[in-house]
Design a protein around this nucleic acid. Sequence first.
DNA 1: CTTCGTCTAGCGGAAAACCACTAGTTTTTT
DNA 2: AAAAAACTAGTGGTTTTCCGCTAGACGAAG
Lengths: 215, 215
Amino acid sequence: MDKIKILVADDHQVIIDGLEAIISTTEHLEFIGGASNGKEVISKVESQPVDLILMDINMPEMDGLECTAYLSKNYPNIRVIALSMHDNPRLAKRMIKNGAFGFLLKNSSKANILTAISEVMQGRNFFDPMLMSTFFDADNKKSSSSFSKKDLLTKREIQIIQLICQEKTTAEIADELSISTHTVESHRGNIMLKLELKNSVGLVKWAIQNEVIEL
Amino acid sequence: MDKIKILVADDHQVIIDGLEAIISTTEHLEFIGGASNGKEVISKVESQPVDLILMDINMPEMDGLECTAYLSKNYPNIRVIALSMHDNPRLAKRMIKNGAFGFLLKNSSKANILTAISEVMQGRNFFDPMLMSTFFDADNKKSSSSFSKKDLLTKREIQIIQLICQEKTTAEIADELSISTHTVESHRGNIMLKLELKNSVGLVKWAIQNEVIEL
DNA sequence: CTTCGTCTAGCGGAAAACCACTAGTTTTTT
DNA sequence: AAAAAACTAGTGGTTTTCCGCTAGACGAAG
């Protein structure tokens, strides 16, 4: 079996050097170069065969997201593993969507990095275990710890929010609850005040984030 | 360091035997028994010290969810790793919420199981890499498969949607794009028509569901 | 028993959104 | 080059939301 040809893309030379050290000292892996932005990556893959790219997300000129999307269209055989400083699940999702096969945090262990490379080259996905943790935490923290503006709201107000989020007008809500439209407006006003929102668009987003409504 | 005392809970004896084999042949790990439902688990932890439980979710009498919730309240020092046949992210979330520290699929490799145990005993979370894959897939399929009304929209319309979702008013949007407010209204009108929406509340929800905006 | 919070209801007015319809210009497609 | 689609801009009007301010009724907590 041939060695796996790996390109490292990151705008910090230290990262490239570190990964080169890990790659070069491992059997079956071959470090074939670094790139400091997406455009460099593309010019390199045009001039030589590449099997796998360890791709930073934040880069100048052309970032990892854009570059990965381009590669997955034009070079579907090249596998991409996203690299990131931050364990941001949303970012991870976007990278996966754009065609990345894996997601690693920069402070990941050597063992993790090597596992990721081998898994991804076998066509499987690999995600940093740390990311997985925050994935769940993100959901838990909101519902359990820390104070939420949700506590400021009364039952009736929550109810009004839910109806607003069902695309109902003030008149419809008033009708449904058998109260006057003035009352509904009064509630809506108080809600806006308490949550410091500008309009109902913000209200919907707040409601979803705080799990007052289901999407 | 003492051996880690592990209890295995599953209503299938094969699973218990299999895990016992893995545990017993590994240093620092000690298999201290099996249980076929949640009630048995509780009676066992009452009679002897336990460090970690590999807990099946589907069990008769008292299932893994309930049992884990009970343990995390009354025996917070006992670590629980959930076991499941199915890579169901929702189930995983619920187990984590109930106090589990990890989530393993039953067809997971020995290496994975051992890693999970060691990670969890160090107070970290561990999630089966396979689960992570389906986590992302679940989201991707929804947006990619079948025809979406998103295709009906033009770039400009998408742009307008994004600005509306930033809680901007028509005037602000017009200003930002250097076009007249009439044009913006015109776009908004077309969007509403194409997506068959009633108002901007529906628009925000649609935008989130179709990943036109990030929450 | 009084205070506090909540729910209720109203007024008046400003701002924003929504609707329908027309129509010229630019860009893209055929 | 012609046709189609997208972007632009307008008129005129209705509906809805948003804002501020007042205020009574009721129940719970002090």
